[in-house]
Design a protein around this nucleic acid. Sequence first.
DNA 1: ACATCTAATGACAACGTTGTCTTCAAGACG
DNA 2: CGTCTTGAAGACAACGTTGTCATTAGATGT
Lengths: 342, 342
Amino acid sequence: MKATIKDVAKLAGVSFKTVSRVINREPSVSEDLQAKVWKAIEELNYQPNMSARQLRGAASFLAFIYDNPNSHYVIEMQHGILAECKRNGFELLIHPVSSGEGERVDELLQVANNSHVAGLILTPPFSESQDVIKALSERGVMFTRIISGEREPDGLGPRVYIDDYRAAFKITQYLIGLGHREIAFLGGEEEHLSSVERLAGYRAALKANNIEPDSHLILPGEYNFDSGTERSRKLLNLDEPPTAIFACNDEIAAGALFAARIQQVPVPQALSIVGFEDSPFSRQSWPKLTTAHQPNPAIAETAARLLIETVRSSRQGEEKPAADQGFQPQLVVRDSTCPRSS
Amino acid sequence: MKATIKDVAKLAGVSFKTVSRVINREPSVSEDLQAKVWKAIEELNYQPNMSARQLRGAASFLAFIYDNPNSHYVIEMQHGILAECKRNGFELLIHPVSSGEGERVDELLQVANNSHVAGLILTPPFSESQDVIKALSERGVMFTRIISGEREPDGLGPRVYIDDYRAAFKITQYLIGLGHREIAFLGGEEEHLSSVERLAGYRAALKANNIEPDSHLILPGEYNFDSGTERSRKLLNLDEPPTAIFACNDEIAAGALFAARIQQVPVPQALSIVGFEDSPFSRQSWPKLTTAHQPNPAIAETAARLLIETVRSSRQGEEKPAADQGFQPQLVVRDSTCPRSS
DNA sequence: ACATCTAATGACAACGTTGTCTTCAAGACG
DNA sequence: CGTCTTGAAGACAACGTTGTCATTAGATGT
């Protein structure tokens, strides 16, 4: 049926080992034979059998672990990882894990135990869970973490961190620069470090400008539309409603935008709204959302690259120093923000 | 390092073949030994080596082929496929293919040739390309197609079709029922059968109501926001602008909504807009979009199931009759449509 | 001219499974 | 009591690769 290395060898008139050598570009095969072998490979449309190769050799799959399948950033990251995998001859195993309780660690260990899998790429909240990290590293599983905020190194594999703190600082600073003082903050699940970091950046910017944070304006919640709508409704019903809302992601911002519409509060004239993520929504809504752009494909690509490097160097016995890498989200000013009306 | 079947056998005091039998739940192993083996497996935390298993046995990956990585339906489908794969002990290989020219067939053949891969799940436009289908079936590659509109059977593998024609008919009928007569149609790329089918359904509904189609109102274009905005702008500048727009997907509808805003045309009072897809945008915009809901996860799940069935029965030598299955998108009425103002 | 080295190639084991065939013992049947 | 059947278990090959070692032949050194 499918051509094997032996078929190629027979056609080329060499031993199958020689074919193996040619395929793997080992030295010490005469040009003469190389040409013959390549021709035979071409002719038979031969492709090495992955299973056999991996049985003998090393695992060549990365596993991408994520939680929220509905968020757009997942597919952006997936795309970046796929690109890097392709470049390195790796394949990708997709693994959504419901971030419920307990069993999730088992589930991850099972994935890691799959003999195809060389390592895991972890996104929040898994990448930020001490339990998960501990369990994985105890079993010698390799992984990269995509994580929010720079942390002191722990020597447990490379990390790609996103500087949410600084981005949130800049966003808040931008709003303050527009004259806003009553700036509400709509957080996401606190299980996600991104929400914590962004809140910290927000607070720091207020402080840097001598603005007293108002606890009525800082509302925890969830990273979704309804949570954004509900909290915004409350905010707008306040006696002294905020003149700007910093939403922890675009979906919350979408909710805020919606609530403002319902209550006929013009955006941005009476209420500036900023999101975070640069999702498709932020480019398609009216008004288009001011938000922070995260280079998700590049982030994920870097995570994949670092993991592959770690895997490779560990195979050669080297103890690779975990080289972290950071990314700065960029403020994208669109039409949902403007100077505070006097 | 990692426990193998032989380690388990040694610990349990049986031959490794017996362990194999236990794992695969073959009959004719005494309860006594079964218990011992399971205990040993537990103790060693043994997991069968996938590569070895596949080397000997059959491929157990499906490959998911898609084009547009930015569209939300891709990840919804991916999710459905993953669920079905999990249920059947299959794994999933993700493969985005740029729908450019020529090489794409080669790229697909290469994926199919991967020894892990049992079959392909094709989405438009690949599933609708005669070239692709022909090339694949000539090489004996198994595949399912997710396709727009019911076609006569061609015996080339199971298909899951989406009845875009009928859905478009219903949408148009609904708009007509609201009193609209000048209904614009904003199409997508004609390479996608969905666009063609939806246009046909639209035309049929007009005809059924004795409305003469107006060629000025039927604008071909692309499945994206800018194309939607641009075409809507033109429509609204017409001497007799339409009172309703049927956009071929939600992204085009988003563009239409945006254009209406810019030109201060109130939606839905002066202009009803309908989308197609039930994307997150349609639930988060203001007003929320009336659209057609496609059960993408279920569609993809079915595609995966049919493919797995075909693969299995072909392994047992049976020639499985290709059992197609159809899905009806459902009209979801939200807030972007209303009766025509008199 | 002879021993020694090196480059090119091949023979064969090994990887961890599953499939096929064989063996063995116990029970059924005449 | 001998033969046949059946169920339980093991021995061993095979899958398609790569790794290790052996073999060959030509080049090099003295």
